[in-house]
């Protein structure tokens, strides 16, 4: 039985298979409408999430399966003090696969250790969010045709942004990737990611506070939100929130085929005036997220 806790749990070949399957689902959705008939997905969401939970639920419904679960800790036994291990042992009796989001880092691993059904990490604090990374990879594949040779810029909160760490790690396994790290000094990429991933793999990179200076070189621009919930101090959050706001003016020097991504939700870091730019891919990214989750659910349930 397989679980998905970290994007590195999947080999590049398996990611390739998932992308291929997702692209086939996009091309022939009707062929997949009954694939999970009779199967149940449990969505155990201990903290609020719109996109990820609905994406998992839509994915399961489109495969012909059904969904049960909870969308906040207060409406679960966690409010009574039940452990993750006990909740998962119980849910294993009702469902065929679990998608779990939890504010505590490592909770999905504890769940996997105690589960008799596959567990998908749907985000654990600032740690991992592998299905977002799969979504990002499918988006890049669809919009740019592949990964090798791309220059990918990451902008905003690179310190707490788990999606950034995971995507950098995932991209580092492909040849000729170049990376631009754009952030205020306080929100720089953690040194262990830089050392253990970028420098270890000898990836060409630039680190800057100035988005406009690197804009012309980028094939992909991955914007991130400065997340209030990652700060213990409101003052720091308010100060850093508006560091980078992407506007049509800043995009003047960008390539005509730039792919602008964002894991969403955004607060104000991308001006709504950018939404109509054909280079804006962040709402397509949401749609791709559903397809890659369909492919993942099928893979973990062993459905061909």
């Amino acid at each position: 039985m397989r679980h998905l806790n970290d994007i590195l749990d999947l080999s590049t070949e398996e990611i390739e298979q998932l992308i291929k399957r997702a692209e086939d689902i996009i091309a022939h959705p009707g062929d997949y409408a009954e694939k999970c008939r009779g199967k149940k997905l449990a969505t155990l969401f201990y903290e609020p999430s719109t996109r990820t939970r609905l994406s998992f639920e839509a994915a399961m419904y489109e495969l012909g399966g059904v969904v049960l679960g909870f969308s906040e800790a207060q409406s679960s036994s966690a409010a009574k003090g039940e452990s993750v291990a006990d909740t998962v042992r119980t849910v294993s009796c009702y469902a065929d696969i679990i998608a779990m989001r939890h504010p505590k880092e490592g909770a999905p691993r504890v769940a996997a250790m105690n589960s008799s059904i596959p567990v998908i990490n749907a985000g654990d604090g600032g740690h991992n969010h592998p299905t977002q990374t799969l979504t990002d990879l499918l988006t890049i594949k669809r919009e740019k045709g592949g990964f090798s040779g791309l220059t990918v810029g990451f902008c905003g909160d690179l310190k707490f942004g788990r999606t950034v760490h995971s995507l950098i790690t995932a991209l580092s396994r492909y040849p000729d990737i170049k990376i631009a790290l754009i952030s205020p000094a306080e929100l720089k990429l953690p040194s262990y990611v830089k050392r253990d991933v970028i420098q270890k793999k000898e990836i060409e990179y630039v680190q800057t506070t100035d988005l406009t200076s690197v804009m012309p070189s980028l094939d992909v621009l991955y914007m991130t939100r400065v997340q209030r919930e990652r700060f213990f101090n409101e003052e720091d959050y308010m100060r850093l929130r508006d560091s980078y706001i992407l506007t049509p003016e800043k995009l003047v020097s960008a390539k005509s085929d730039l792919c602008i991504m964002h894991p969403l939700p955004r607060v104000n870091e991308i001006s709504t005036a950018v939404d109509s730019d054909p280079r804006a891919a962040y709402f397509k990214q949401v749609l791709y997220g559903k397809y890659i989750r369909m492919a993942l659910i099928m893979m973990l349930l062993g459905i061909e």
Binding site: S83, K104, E105, G106, V110
Partner: peptide, 11 residues
């Protein structure tokens, strides 16, 4: 402080 070991019983 965000680790699951801070809250999960007897882990």
């Amino acid at each position: 402080p965000r680790c699951i070991t801070t809250v999960e019983q007897e882990l």
